[in-house]
Write a protein that binds this DNA or RNA. Structure first.
Lengths: 203, 203
DNA sequence: ACCAAAGTTGCGTGCCACGCATCTTTGCGG
DNA sequence: CCGCAAAGATGCGTGGCACGCAACTTTGGT
């Protein structure tokens, strides 16, 4: 990867990170793109060369994570049963990467509160969900490859992708909702087991 | 229902309808809020007393439809098996209401094309998905009631709601994708059957 | 070392979301 | 039947955002 692409990725990451941090600190509409650009050391106009909107910048990290699920699925051994592979591919995205270690959160509770406020913003909810839709297309393609189904003809791969992402976001939403917190891995595993069992009504 | 509420509902419907029609005709960013307000016979400022954004106005009818799923589920006989009730509640929203009959579409193909262009708009995708999220909360509550589960403690009702809406939107998306079109009812039924069966990998 | 392509920046424009103050309509209690 | 409080509609003004356009700068292959 040349200097060009590396710099671009860095700027993108810096902008997204700045957008998230400032929004968690101050709230969505007390942050101007000008502020974000300044925090990332770039001109305000450049912001829109990377992201179409403030919301998109904030959702970018989430999008990246979701897209990696499809990539991980392709990396899994083809012999592995589909649902085992899917659940592992999702769980693999929940190990904290190096960028989290680099920027340790000072006040855990304050951060969580800020996150919750941030996600309450309508524009951002839409943006996060849209990221899910983009990732869904990728995942559906990967599922189609693995199962030998056809994206254009069959409902199956789309349905599986949608179900997987729905299970993931339901589990993480439940995680943000519960107090005291239940481990995410546990919730994800439970969700996948339920879906794979056809979500039978509890007796 | 008094004159007051009726008028309000009418204005809301008129605004949403005008927003959709104009957007399908001209495209999202060739329609100004001013135009929508004018078409609905109301002042531009009033538009924002009903909707927070242009996108919200367009997605409003979709939201209404989705919210009715939860209402329909509550109306179903409690003895009915859960998944039967859910699939019927969804299918019930696909009978054309009186407002469709009142405004017959002149050119079917042109309308479909406009719809597709409209739904390609990022802002609207987000808005449509957000409507789904709102409806999901309602549906989860209805599911919790019916199954005796707890919204705060159990993952189950949220998961079922998410799966149902995911299946619905996947089916309708597939409908918009297929050419020649497959009936929506068929796709919906197939989707529900697959989900209830745990989405087994095709042999 | 040069040059085309890619990326950044400044400027200007149209529109949008929304706060606030004012005017109009509604429907209820006397 | 009437007047009055509450709800809603409207006009105006403001801050900010998305984006087109036209320089200017950096990159990396030849």
């Amino acid at each position: 990867m040349g200097l060009r692409e590396r710099k671009k990725a860095e700027t993108r990451a810096a902008l997204s990170w700045a957008a998230i941090r400032l929004t968690v600190e101050r709230g969505f509409d007390r942050v101007r793109v000008e502020d974000i650009a300044e925090a990332a050391g770039v001109s305000p106009r450049t912001f829109n060369n990377y992201f179409a909107s403030k919301g998109e910048a904030i959702a970018a990290r989430h999008l990246d994570r979701l897209v990696r699920i499809a990539a991980e699925l392709r990396r899994r051994p083809p012999a592995e049963p589909l649902w085992e592979a899917l659940s592992q591919a999702v769980l693999a995205q929940w190990v904290p990467g190096p960028e989290v270690v680099e920027h340790p959160v000072t006040d855990q509770a304050e951060w969580a509160a800020g996150l919750r406020i941030m996600l309450a913003e309508p524009v951002l909810q839409g943006e996060v969900l849209r990221a899910g839709a983009v990732a869904e297309a990728e995942l559906a393609a990967a599922v189609a490859e693995r199962t030998g189904t056809d994206l254009a003809r069959d409902l199956y791969p789309h349905l599986v992708a949608a179900a997987v992402l729905a299970a993931s976001s339901t589990a993480t939403a439940h995680f943000l909702r519960t107090d005291p917190p239940v481990p995410v891995n546990r919730l994800l595993t439970e969700a996948f087991a339920l879906v794979a069992a056809g979500l039978p009504a509890p007796s």
